[in-house]
Write a protein that binds this DNA or RNA. Structure first.
Lengths: 218, 218
DNA sequence: TTACATGTAAGGGTTTACCCCTAGCCTACT
DNA sequence: AGTAGGCTAGGGGTAAACCCTTACATGTAA
């Protein structure tokens, strides 16, 4: 029985080294390499041909999702487990579309991690409980015909993007109205549509979204 | 020669386990425990009496800085190395005031980490190059005397920091009140003081401030 | 002991945000 | 001509946020 060949991808070397050291204690797993970026990961996947890749989703440059797409194009047999610091609905959807086999939050324990590697290597999928719930919820939403959420979700109109930008920089509705030369009522309408489309709850989440998606700068 | 007793503090169990596994290969270092929060860290520091603590600065609940203050009050002999995702001027300043012995970015390599533990245990300070530069810059700024605004501005109390953290994550005043088991009126008072002290105008700016200063994560 | 800082909380009022609905106008595409 | 999507904006209501002031208990530093 040959060992499971694992490739680690994370832009934090500390976490990579740690994972490597941790997995070195597991007999049936061998770490064949570690990459510090998505680009490096794509190259190493081709070179080392691992069975399973543990991939961070948030990296400087190419994201884990993008890297996964490239890798899967080259070799669809390589299994990818995404590791993310926060459970994110949008990213999970993206990841699943890219064909990932597993998705784990960064606070998983060692046994769960090893378990996930085993399962995925055996051809199964592995998603933690919280992730599974999100997937089912999302699936349920699609089935109940809330296609708006999917189709319209990330497609903000030009004007909505402008409003989002202004609001996220800290302006009140009235100030946004003055800036864009429209009524406060229009701003409210746009804002309501934005929160609706993005599935956000309030201004605080909106600001975080704007920063995360580089709509505004810090 | 006795081993260096190390305590790990980070709210990501994966990183904790990884660090533990990594350091287990180093002969003269032994990991005596790991804590998932600042509160836990304070207790474990008292219980296990480590030589060196590797402490994440960003955690749910108490920050690494706050935990350090508590620990140092109990036992000033315990050395603390702060590990931070991003290099941040304000936090370094806070950390130094709290008496930390080292400050490392999360992307340090293994040898640097071990080196830092050795140095700090031997009574020296250890700061990476980039950190050193910031310290010198900051020192220079202090000498040039533009510090009044900063001194008053950035001194939020412990409780205010907690409120800030909760608000910035997107909670309403009522939700913050429920979380911290205080009245919504108290939350409003704190929030008003926070906005006043930081010279901010509203929640949006507050969120940006919180992200900029690594009080919350994206 | 006085004085200051901190954390707590309330009253009472003003402002802003959010929600739901309607609806006219324009443009582009079929 | 008809339809759809996007931008505009109002009415009317509820909820939440914000402002200012006061107050009391607890520490701690002057």
């Amino acid at each position: 029985m040959s060992k499971i060949r694992v490739l680690l991808v994370d832009d934090h070397q500390l976490l990579r080294d740690g994972l490597a050291a941790m997995l070195s204690n597991i007999e049936h797993i061998t770490v064949v390499g570690s990459a510090g970026s998505g680009e490096e990961a794509v190259n190493m996947a081709q070179e080392k041909v691992p069975d399973v890749i543990l991939m961070d989703i948030m990296m400087g440059g190419m994201t884990g999702i993008e890297a996964t797409r490239w890798i899967k194009e080259q070799n669809a047999n390589i299994k990818v487990i995404i590791i993310s610091q926060e459970v994110n609905q949008g990213l999970i959807g993206e990841g699943i579309k890219s064909g990932i086999e597993g998705y784990l939050p960064k606070d998983v324990d060692k046994t769960t991690l090893v378990n996930a590697i085993n399962k995925v290597n055996a051809g199964e999928k592995f998603f933690s409980e919280s992730i599974t719930k999100i997937i089912f919820d999302s699936y349920y939403q699609q089935e109940t015909g809330e296609q708006k959420s999917k189709a319209k979700n990330k497609d903000l109109t030009k004007r909505e993007m402008e409003v989002l930008k202004e609001v996220a920089t800290g302006k009140t509705n009235q100030e946004v109205a003055d800036t864009l030369f429209i009524s406060i009522k229009t701003v409210e309408t746009h804002k309501s549509h934005i929160l609706d489309k993005l599935g956000l709850k309030n201004t605080a989440e909106l600001v975080k979204y704007a920063i995360k998606n580089e709509i505004i700068e810090l």
